Amino acid sequence: MYGIKNCDTIKKAQKFLINHQIDFEFIDFRDNPIDKTKLQTFVDKLTLEKLINKRSTTYRNLNDKEKDNITLELVLKNPTLIKRPVLVTNNDIMVGFSKKSYSKLC
């Protein structure tokens, strides 16, 4: 699971996984920045559009030109643009948290 530790959605997702006894590793974007190869893997599976959190403060603080041209480099510089959590499983990559989608892991 990728995200940032103080994110409420991360906390909900972690609680769900713990309560359902599903093992996971948490990787904080701020402590362990994501590399370009890993980010490209997420984009290839999900698309950049689905990966970007347009409700985040980071996104709202971008200028119009940046908002219209989000690149991997921009996301690497501003990892909080990534919607959280990003959960990588053996078969899939899920972004965001919903009990319905996470229930499929049980």
Score class of each variant (00 low, 15 high):
residue 105 L to K: 05
residue 78 N to C: 08
residue 63 N to G: 04
residue 36 K to Y: 08
residue 96 G to P: 02
residue 96 G to D: 04
residue 50 K to H: 13
residue 2 Y to D: 01
residue 24 F to A: 02
residue 57 T to S: 15
residue 49 E to Y: 14
residue 1 M to D: 00
residue 12 K to D: 00
residue 63 N to R: 01
residue 29 F to Y: 15
residue 1 M to C: 04
residue 21 Q to S: 12
residue 87 L to P: 11
residue 45 K to S: 13
residue 39 L to T: 00
residue 51 L to S: 05
residue 68 D to P: 00
residue 17 L to D: 01
residue 42 F to Y: 15
residue 8 D to R: 13
residue 76 L to Y: 09
residue 100 K to N: 14
residue 97 F to P: 03
residue 87 L to S: 03
residue 44 D to R: 10
residue 69 N to E: 10
residue 82 I to M: 12
residue 49 E to P: 03
residue 34 I to L: 06
residue 55 R to C: 02
residue 62 L to G: 07
residue 47 T to A: 08
residue 100 K to I: 13
residue 3 G to F: 07
residue 98 S to N: 09
residue 56 S to H: 04
residue 10 I to S: 04
residue 2 Y to C: 12
residue 30 R to V: 13
residue 41 T to H: 12
residue 88 V to P: 13
residue 17 L to R: 00
residue 106 C to F: 13
residue 6 N to H: 12
residue 12 K to M: 08
residue 13 A to C: 08
residue 104 K to Y: 04
residue 51 L to P: 06
residue 73 E to T: 07
residue 57 T to N: 14
residue 19 N to T: 00
residue 59 Y to W: 11
residue 27 I to V: 13
residue 12 K to L: 05
residue 78 N to Y: 10
residue 10 I to H: 06
residue 95 V to H: 06
residue 85 P to N: 11
residue 88 V to T: 08
